[in-house]
């Protein structure tokens, strides 16, 4: 079979009937389902993207769980537990979606703790203050929503459907983050400083979550052709900033970009230059918390090994017992 880089339907290309059907489904904006034929590149690209997303949810639990035991009110503690628990749930749906493509959860987990799989670099930043619970919700979850809403229409069915559910929950997460910052900004001088300091630290990393500029994004063109991805990195980043500016005004926080200004011509907010060196440093493993995040995941996995082994052994004994009873 020939797996083409862009679906090529010209008369000269030799493609199989299955591939033609696949191309037609993509062209018609229909959904590809697990048992449908798909090009190997499409399958690999999806497994990469979905497992990275799942890993991001799992590693993303850490910076927030850091504050569960210290949340400053019982209401906030309950909300934070619910939110981090949602992230574990998202990880589970996404691993399941990747499993429909033939990936196994064990392999994906092993790749993560061996440091071979990628996850969103944003979670390699630390959460030294309570206000970071607000900034993560408002900025990080906000950026995630801009990225993820278009994925609800991703061509691969199980992924698109998982994303519908995830996006609903993410929008609550963003709202609660905004509310944390709103409360801080209406509070004492120390609380306002805590909020502004946190926004200063998370703003640029959140913008980098959309990925490199379009002219430097190797996987984007193919993903867009296959309709896994629907908008370019720069388009989504711009949409996000346009959304943030009025929200920052409501909060009373300053976005830490002195060059940010409204462009009358394009009716968009033009932003200053993003420092991509930092992005590449964090991506290369030289961020503030890369080592700590992986170590914590590996420790939890290793320390829980005896529990998982016990569950497997128990299930095996139970099914042997059931079979014995059925035979007697």
């Amino acid at each position: 079979m020939t797996s083409t880089i862009t679906p090529d339907t010209s008369a000269t290309a030799v493609i199989s009937v299955e591939e033609q059907q696949f191309n037609d489904l993509i062209e018609a904006d229909s959904r590809i389902e697990p048992r449908d034929w798909m090009p190997e590149g499409y399958r690999k690209s999806l497994v990469r993207q979905i497992s990275q997303h799942a890993h991001s949810e799992i590693i993303g639990m850490q910076p927030e769980s850091n504050w569960i035991t210290r949340a400053p009110s019982l209401k906030r503690k309950a909300i934070l537990i619910a939110k981090v628990q949602d992230e574990a749930g998202h990880g589970l749906y996404l691993y399941s979606a990747a499993q429909t493509l033939g990936a196994t959860r064990d392999d994906m987990t092993d790749a993560l703790i061996a440091g071979k799989a990628r996850y969103s670099s944003i979670f390699n930043y630390p959460t030294p203050s309570w206000a970071d619970m607000g900034s993560i919700g408002w900025l990080v979850d906000g950026a995630a929503i801009c990225n993820q809403v278009p994925l609800c229409r991703a061509s691969y069915g199980p992924y698109g459907r998982a994303m519908v559910r995830i996006c609903k929950e993410e929008s609550f997460h963003q709202r609660q983050g905004f509310e944390i910052l709103l409360e801080l900004m209406a509070g004492t001088e120390e609380q306002r400083q805590m909020a502004q300091d946190s926004v200063n630290r998370w703003y640029w990393p959140a913008l980098m979550m959309f990925g490199p500029p379009d002219d430097d994004s190797p996987n984007s063109a193919q993903s867009m052709a296959w309709k896994i991805k629907r908008h370019s990195n720069d388009e989504l980043r711009q949409r996000f900033v346009n959304m943030l500016v009025p929200q920052a005004a409501v909060l009373g926080v300053t976005l830490p970009d002195p060059d940010l200004h409204f462009n009358e011509e394009t009716q968009q907010w033009d932003l200053g230059v993003i420092d991509w060196t930092e992005f590449h440093e964090v991506l290369a493993g030289r961020g503030p918390n890369n080592a700590q995040r992986l170590q914590r995941r590996r420790d939890a996995h290793d320390e829980g090994a005896w529990v998982r082994e016990a569950a497997v052994a128990y299930a095996r004994k139970q099914s042997a017992r059931t079979e014995e009873m059925a035979a007697s």
């Binding site: 799992i58 639990m61 850490q62 769980s65 569960i68 035991t69 537990i81 619910a82 981090v84 628990q85 574990a88 749930g89 990880g91 589970l92 691993y95 914590r296 420790d299 939890a300 320390e303 829980g304 090994a305 529990v307 998982r308």
Partner: peptide, 16 residues
């Protein structure tokens, strides 16, 4: 304090 440290994801959810 267990959340994100449980032996498996299902237990992160359950203990949560």
């Amino acid at each position: 304090a267990w959340i994100s440290r449980a032996p498996e994801l299902e237990e992160d959810v359950a203990l949560g």
